[in-house]
Every structure is written in C-alpha cells, then in structure tokens.
Amino acid sequence: MSAHGPTFRGFANPVDPSPAELRAWAYQPDSVPLTSLPQDWDLLVAGDHLVLTLFELARDPACPARRFALHCLYIYAADGIRTKFRAHPRRRFRRLVEQAERDGDELVRNWAHNSRMLLARQELFTYHDWCEGGLVRDNRRLG
C-alpha cells in the first residue's frame, strides 16, 4: 500500500484509462512498464479526458511519473495550438497555463512559458521537442 492508494494492478482498457487508473499508475509506474503499454500511449492519454489528471501529476514533485505527465502536457499544448484549438478547448488550455504560472515550480512554469511561446510563434514547434519529450529532458525555456 502506498501513500497514494492501493497497489495498482493494471488498466481495464489501457487505450482509454480512467483518471483514477492513470493516477494510480503514476505513483507505481513500474507496476505496468511503459514498454508494455500500447505504442504511442503518450499520444493516446494526452487528451481532454485526462489533462486535469496529467496536470495534477506534473505538479507533484513526489510523483514517480511526473516527467511522463509533463511530457503529455507538452503534447496537449502543441496539439491544441497547432490545430487552432479544434483539438482542445482554448479556455481549458489558458486556465492550465495561468495556474502553472501562478502555482507551478520551475518545470511546470517552463511548460507554461514554452506553451505561450508556441502560441505566439508556431514555427518554434519541432516534433522532437514537443512530442518526443525533448523539452522535458532538457528543461529549457524557448526564447
């Protein structure tokens, strides 16, 4: 038993996990290794249904899957911005960015800054940085 709930035993449907399943997995990510999940699982979970859970996990320095959650937030931001918010609601995105700027630590504030930079200058998008985790690994701010 962990501080975040009972032992995670797997997803009912890994292609469409519930927020509770994602949260439980994030605190015990070795219970179901990423390599055993569907290909491009990060792209599958980086949607509106789970974005609030991902945001919560990315803000928790104690979460073992924090960097994965942050990576998914980068995918979410890029997807929304590059589709001119047809993929995700602008209002939800804006609220997350504002909350990250207000309450986030350096990692989360960098996500907010980089998201605003991409919104202003879409030519800053590279698949490597936004969808393959480059900005998370480098923890850098776009200029």
Rank of each mutant, 00 (worst) to 15 (best):
F8H: 08
N13T: 12
P14Y: 03
S18A: 03
E21W: 02
E21K: 05
A24D: 02
D30P: 01
D30Q: 13
D30A: 10
L34I: 14
L34Y: 15
P38E: 12
P38W: 03
Q39S: 13
D40V: 02
V45R: 02
V45L: 00
H49E: 09
H49I: 02
L50G: 12
V51D: 01
L52H: 08
T53I: 00
D60Y: 07
D60C: 02
A62G: 03
R67C: 06
L70I: 14
H71E: 04
L73S: 10
Y74W: 11
Y74K: 00
A77N: 02
A77I: 05
D79I: 03
T83E: 11
K84N: 10
K84V: 04
R86T: 10
R90V: 05
R90T: 01
F93P: 11
F93S: 11
E98F: 03
Q99R: 08
D105I: 03
E106A: 14
L107F: 13
H113I: 00
N114R: 07
M117W: 07
L118K: 00
L118Y: 00
E123V: 10
L124A: 07
L124Q: 04
D129M: 09
W130M: 07
W130P: 12
C131F: 08
L135S: 01
N139C: 08
R140S: 13
L142I: 09
